[in-house]
Design a protein around this nucleic acid. Structure first.
Length: 892
RNA sequence: GCCCGCGUGGCGGAAUGGUAGACGCUACAGACUUAAAAUCUGUUGUUCGAAAGGGCGUGUGGGUUCGAGUCCCUCCGCGGGCACCA
């Protein structure tokens, strides 16, 4: 006798969920073991910074990864799905200052708290591989990598101008400066000269760029962002001969050149050196050389600096520039300003001299810091020429079909006023111009990149120590690998500003490994982005305690990461560094692969409604009520409430929800379901309490279905593999066939990472099962198979309730260990269908036909529909269209 | 400014060129209940109509097609990235 479905007690998640979590943990259900007989799949979510609390964005990120991981496991893959902690970094030190705690204690305590939170979400992690980047074993190995890269010439120390964050008291990499501000502190970044460690990522610019073409399973968006960041331009450098040196400048110090300009040292400095004094410019448009009417150099160019020593006006101009360039308002205005140098250069093909200006819009850190200006075909040059009344010569005549032919013009066209280039297309002229410039010995084909070397020194304590000593006699000396590790001392104090490693009484004092004299340790630590540039390799290692962390067999087996999941905010920073590190480690002989992440998935942010008082003060949703007029007001004071935009959840906007609270009231399964239902995972996800409530309803609906079906006598024993569909009642046969379609749809959706679509198909299927509850008792075998496979479909998404149901029905083993259900194609083909009938492309009715009905039969049936008759009326039938299984269309 | 991406009900969103709006949220109604909640079952793009049925509908305008949310062009709007990169 079956139960009354509405009387069934709700799903008791608070008992069921912890029970299965413990079971999985005790039985090492998700321990990754490499199995040669299976295809492998490495699923990785970007690891977490242990800030202290798991937030809902983490939940979404890790739920997406967990669904993929469990799905792949079921599909027969040998899956690696690890978890770890990006544990070094500034916040630990800031917290230490504030709470008088030790960064180490703060970090490890946070990890403990967050680990428990994560465990309560029931993710299928192999916890045996859990580690933190501040673990000695990890950063010790990182020091080994540092030395190997140093030896390979990939790391160097250099005095350079760096981005200084005055709030965090620390250097930032270029990638960490966003709109002139520190990416974490938000403070306006200052320029400082400091001696810094750099990693030669620029050596890999070309490979990092060209390999993007192979990353066809990465979002296009991320590839474009990296491409732009690397910023390759191909063109030509031209050495202009200086025709007068009335200013007396004959020599610019080569050292000063390479100091400010590390990327392209020797050959450029020759251009300003020696007896034939030349000025090197870089251009991507050499074909416009006949339109050149002046040259411009950057205010930071060595020639400008040299001139400023003797010329008061220029000195003043440079000072003004320096003052202006730091203020953001100035950069916004972008007014073109310049000053004459008094220098003239010879045009390479024309018997005329071109004046050289110092111009504020020319950047020293790109190209050669000097340009030739073609005002007719460049916006900035044009603006400058108009302002200073310089000639404008058109050399590209626009094509006829171009609507806007005004100058400056940079579209397609034909060369004019250009001697040997006249009549050519831009493309041909470019080649011809470069050839000629090379031929006469003043030009050279060149490539330039925007990418700069990665500055990795950080003037902080809580990071990986750089394994180097400074000796007055011997200079900068890397340690030998037998002298590793350089451990971070625990006994540090934060009572003084600055780097605690510097204040430590003994730590920095060592003997020089070469001469044995007193020396000091490097006090800077490594940027934490170094830690996260190779952690995915560490996870591959099965027994880290007893093996080399880059033991090649384990890494070769698991790498590359097949599915990497994280936020778009790492599109450049972490993802570029990790790609670079992989290539560099390969060149150092540690590994063989050259790209770390095969498929990248960038998930959207979790957003939520915001509320503000009229003065802009943010309000918690709980502070807001609706008054009797239907308007929103502050509950305690009755003040007017402004509904803000739906924004990314953040503490400051008071629109966060706490995963712990949700789990307590609704359970993990409901939360997991909610964060991936409705919205595609790559899009921003709008949080709503009603939506969560709806997921809780669905989880309960499932639970009632399971309990009810079981009370009808459905159990594991009823499962018979051979269902004879012909012997079934029509409804039941339809349900069974529809279930096969559900399996196909859910499988396809999950293959394409469309969790929202998979869930919609499952909900639809559950609804149709509810519609035939009366048929269950008479068809236990059919329904036992449907229920068994339904549990399998649901298991990646809501694993706890599935595990509970699986055991309740008495199926063998664990739901989590089952293989993915398959569908039979023959059930997907419908024998009878309702074919839409159109007249002139407008739907006028449907006709029930057999799939195999011939065309004329279908037409006859279709034409007998009243509505169709009316629509056709007295008109003559011009055309009859029949697409088998799709549509009928009559054209009149 | 340049480069991407996106515009579908009140909302989140479905839809290999073939019945637009699956699935869910909201709202409304019915059943159950003394009642409420929960649950189950419906309805829910808009408009005309008592109904049958019809008109209009995927940002705008055009094109290709028997047929366009989907492909092509134009414009508009939104979001993101880069931003004096020679």
């Amino acid at each position: 006798m079956s139960l009354d479905i509405s009387e069934i007690t709700p799903y008791n998640f608070s008992v069921v969920e912890p029970k299965w979590q413990e079971f999985w943990h005790k039985n090492h259900t998700f321990r990754s073991v490499f199995d040669e007989k299976k295809p492998k799949c490495y699923v990785l979510e970007m690891f977490m910074y242990p800030s202290g609390k798991v937030h809902i964005g983490h939940v979404r990120n890790y739920t997406i990864g967990d669904i993929i991981s469990r799905f792949k496991r079921a599909c027969g893959y040998s899956v690696l799905h690890p978890v770890g902690w990006d544990a070094f970094g500034l916040p630990a030190e800031n917290a230490a200052l504030k709470n008088k705690s030790h960064p180490k204690d703060w970090t490890y305590q946070n990890i403990d708290v967050m680990r428990n939170q994560i465990k309560a979400l029931g993710f299928s992690y192999d916890w045996s591989r859990d580690f933190a980047t501040c673990d000695q074993k990890y950063y010790e190995f990182q020091q080994k990598i540092f030395l190997a890269m140093y030896e390979k010439g990939l790391i160097y120390k250099k005095n350079s101008e760096v981005n200084w964050d005055p709030v965090d008291n620390c250097v930032l990499a270029n990638e960490q400066v966003v709109e002139g501000r520190g990416w974490r502190s938000g403070a306006i970044v200052e320029k400082r000269m400091l001696s810094q460690w750099f990693v030669k990522i620029t050596d890999y610019a070309e490979e990092l760029l060209s390999d993007l073409n192979n990353l066809n399973e990465w979002p296009e968006k991320v590839r474009i962002m990296q491409e732009n960041w690397i910023g390759k331009s191909e063109g030509c450098s031209i050495n202009f001969k200086i025709s007068n040196c009335s200013t007396g400048i004959t020599h610019v110090d080569a050292a000063s050149m390479s100091q400010t300009h590390h990327a392209y040292p020797s050959e450029d400095s020759e251009a300003v050196n020696g007896s034939s004094f030349k000025l090197a410019v870089f251009t991507t448009r050499p074909e416009t050389i006949f339109g050149a009417t002046f040259l411009a150099i950057s205010p930071d160019h060595p020639i400008a600096l040299e001139l400023a020593k003797t010329n008061g006006k220029i000195k003043k101009f440079l000072e003004e520039y320096k003052k202006g360039s730091v203020s953001t308002e100035f950069l916004d205005k972008q007014e073109k300003l310049g000053i004459e140098t008094g220098i003239f250069v010879e045009h390479p093909f024309l018997k005329k001299s071109l004046p050289v200006f110092i111009a504020n819009f020319v950047l020293m850190n790109y190209g050669t810091g000097a340009i030739f200006a073609t005002p007719a075909h460049d916006e900035r040059d044009y603006e400058f020429a108009v302002k200073y009344n310089l000639p404008i010569i058109e050399v590209v005549r626009p094509d006829d079909d171009v609507a806007d032919k005004r100058l400056p013009y940079w579209g397609n066209g034909t060369l004019v006023n250009s001697e040997f280039l006249d009549g050519m297309t831009i493309k041909d002229a470019r080649k011809a111009a470069i050839d000629k410039l090379c031929e006469i010995g003043i030009g050279e084909r060149k490539k330039f990149y925007k990418l700069r070397d990665w500055g990795v020194s950080r003037q902080r304590y809580w990071g990986c120590p750089i394994p180097v000593v400074h000796c007055e006699k011997c200079g900068v000396i890397p340690l030998k690998s037998e002298d590793l590790p350089v451990l971070l001392p625990d006994d540090v104090s934060f009572d003084k500003p600055g780097n605690p490693l510097d204040h430590h009484a003994t730590w920095k004092h060592v003997k020089c490994p070469i001469c044995g004299d007193d020396a000091t340790r490097e006090k800077d630590t490594l940027d934490t982005f170094v830690d996260s540039s190779w952690y995915f390799l560490r996870f591959c290692v099965d027994d880290p305690e007893n093996s080399d962390l880059l033991s090649s067999r384990d890494i070769e087996q698991w790498m590359p990461v097949d599915q990497y999941i994280g936020g778009i905010e790492h599109a450049i920073l972490h993802l570029l560094y990790a790609r670079f590190f992989t290539k560099a480690l390969a060149d150092c002989g540690f590994i063989k692969i050259r790209e770390p992440f095969r498929h990248l998935f960038t998930q959207g942010m979790v957003c939520s409604a915001t509320y503000q008082k009229e003065n802009g003060e943010w309000l918690f949703p709980s502070e807001v009520v609706r008054n009797q007029h239907g308007a929103l007001e502050v509950a305690s004071t009755g003040e007017k409430v402004v509904v803000g935009r739906i924004e990314k959840m953040s503490k400051s906007k008071k629109n966060v929800v706490d995963p712990d609270t949700i789990i307590k009231s609704y359970g993990t399964d409901s939360l997991r379901l909610f964060v991936v239902s409705d919205t595609p995972p790559e899009k921003d996800f709008p949080w709503s309490d009603e939506g969560l409530e709806g997921c809780w309803r669905f989880v309960n609906r499932l639970w009632r279905l399971f309990v009810f079906v079981q009370s009808c006598g459905v159990c594991a024993k009823e499962c018979s593999a051979n269902i004879n569909i012909d012997g079934l009642h029509n409804n039941v046969a339809e349900t069974y066939k529809a279930f096969h379609l559900t399996i196909k749809n859910v499988t396809d959706a999950l293959e394409g990472r469309g969790m929202n679509r998979a869930i919609a198909h499952i909900r639809d299927c559950v609804n149709s099962i509810y519609a035939c509850l009366n048929d269950i008792e008479a068809n236990k075998n059919v329904f036992s198979i449907i229920i068994r496979d339904l549990i399998k479909l649901l298991s990646p998404i809501v694993p706890h309730i599935c595990e509970e149901a699986w055991s309740m029905f008495g199926f063998e083993g664990l739901a989590s260990d089952q293989s993915w259900p398959s569908y039979d194609e023959k059930y997907l083909v419908k024998s009878n269908i309702n074919l839409p009938v159109q007249v002139n492309g407008r739907l006028r009715g449907t006709v029930s036909v057999s799939v195999d009905d011939p065309e004329d039969v279908v037409f006859e049936k279709a034409l007998s529909i009243d509505n169709v008759k009316t629509a056709i009326g007295a008109n003559h039938l011009k055309k009859k269209i029949f697409i088998k299984g799709k549509i009928v269309n009559f054209v009149v």
